[in-house]
């Protein structure tokens, strides 16, 4: 540790707040209900920007960890974040809050679609949302990248992950298992601060 050489990063200055069970429930309920086109982008918005539960880098690390585990990424992240603030009960509360409301909405939407899905306007709106949802995911990734202020190693491993999966459809597990040791290794090699 050489605290004098570099200013502390925002993650080190961040003091995690106390988050009650009720606040966890309401926060994840909101994430589930507004989570159009997948929950990831909205989870970041609520947890980091709106409620200030976690610092950007911390949230990205939890998300990255949730991503290398099997299963839905945001459910995994909800388990870990819920556990961090309120133990096992918090994990259960976060997951149930995240799933319950959208499940009801989804069933209603499916019933509506059965009735009105053949209408041209409904088809148009659905394809518009599908195309927009892809942009939402891309934009969220770019925003996170900008806020993390990546150094050369981060740019390298993040860029490699992007190209491997987007251009070559590399399997996710293999991508992460290959890039993580490379990044950690490089961080040992490059000792001197920029």
């Amino acid at each position: 540790m050489q605290p004098s050489l570099q200013p502390p990063s925002p993650a080190q200055l961040f003091v995690p707040p106390h988050v009650t069970k009720a606040a966890l429930f309401l926060g994840f309920l909101k994430i589930g209900l507004i989570g159009f086109g997948g929950v990831g982008p909205w989870a970041r918005r609520v947890i980091v920007e709106e409620r200030g539960w976690m610092a950007e880098a911390d949230y990205a690390a939890v998300l990255g960890f949730g991503q290398i585990l099997p299963g839905a990424n945001t459910i995994n992240a909800a388990v870990i974040i819920g556990d961090r603030f309120q133990g096992a009960a918090g994990a259960a509360i976060a997951v149930l809050a995240l799933l319950s409301a959208p499940m009801a909405v989804l069933i209603a939407a499916a019933a509506l679609y059965d009735r009105f899905g053949s209408l041209p306007d409904v088809r148009g709106a659905l394809s518009g949302v599908a195309v927009g949802a892809a942009g939402l995911v891309i934009g969220t990734g770019l925003k996170m990248a900008r806020k993390l202020r990546p150094d050369a190693i981060a740019l390298l491993v993040g860029g490699c992950a992007l190209v491997a999966v987007a251009a070559f459809r590399a399997p996710l597990l293999a991508t992460v298992l290959a890039l993580a040791p490379i990044g950690v290794g490089l961080s040992f090699v490059r000792r001197s601060p920029r």
Partner: peptide, 8 residues
Amino acid sequence: VLGPIAVG
């Protein structure tokens, strides 16, 4: 390292 990989 995992943060940037997740973003990618």
